[in-house]
Amino acid sequence: MALPTYASPLERVWYYTYLVICTLIFIFLIAPILIVIPLSFNAEPYFTFTEKMLTFDPAGYSLRWYDTLLTLGHPGSDTMRDEAWWSAVWERSTWVQAAKNSFWVGLWATILATFLGTVAALGLSRPEMPYRRLIMAILISPMIVPIIIIAVGMSFFFAQACVPPDSIWSTIFGPFLSEKGCLVNSHLGVIVAHAVLGIPFVIITVTATLSGFDQSLIRAAHSLGANPRTTFFKVVMPLILPGVISGALFAFVTSFDEVVAVLFIAGPDQQTIPRQMFNGIREAISPAILAVATLLVIISVALLTTVELLRRRSERLRGITPH
């Protein structure tokens, strides 16, 4: 936006003030996220910049907090870093275990939410769908209902949701449930909880993609002799895929960042990164938290870039050109 030539001096002053205000708000948005990156290289156990850091003295910086991430819960921190050391890190380090749990829970929750959500979105965006508004409101509600309420409800229910021992159900689901055969304190419980929380995001992104979908393409495919399955996989799927993938990424991030449900329904075997961070912030706050935070910022930048590229691709495919 440029100032119109008829702008008065007062308007010119206001215009530049406005730009300054906007810049300050952008700094407010982004600075807290960027500030954790240099802080995580602190050589001292402080949460702020030391004098050495401010003078860019290399002695003020170190990778010790990243090292802590590998060695916490792993006894041999001073031994040689050979293959055995690394495999011990992989098997025992607290943060690595948390990362593994977060990844697997996130992956399965995403698959569940994306599959169910995409199929439902296909139904929801058909004009014939009955009770569309009500069903949509129900499916979006996990995003609106406070997480604490969901967590309380789930912790009551999942403690009761058990399979009878020595039944066929216990043979099928047993390995995914807790020792007592319940959803509480089990991986399946956390996955299910995170899938519910991710569903609204999948529904929103996929229905948004489908709203720009030209229904006549389906009729065109049919008229050219394609059966419903071919039509879906060759015509519909490629067009809605960007929406599905960004919905899946949203669902994954939701799970990857979720802590309240984990606090209430997970056991010691389901420690995730956010839970580890939550405990870390509550108890002994150490810059190791900042090191994790930095890694998470890098992941979120990567995910955001992917989603943006997908969105642009989807807009290009649908013929909506940026103006």
Partner: peptide, 13 residues
Amino acid sequence: WTSLLVRTTAWIA
């Protein structure tokens, strides 16, 4: 897109 806990940690810092 950034973790809520990251942002909270940043504000503590």
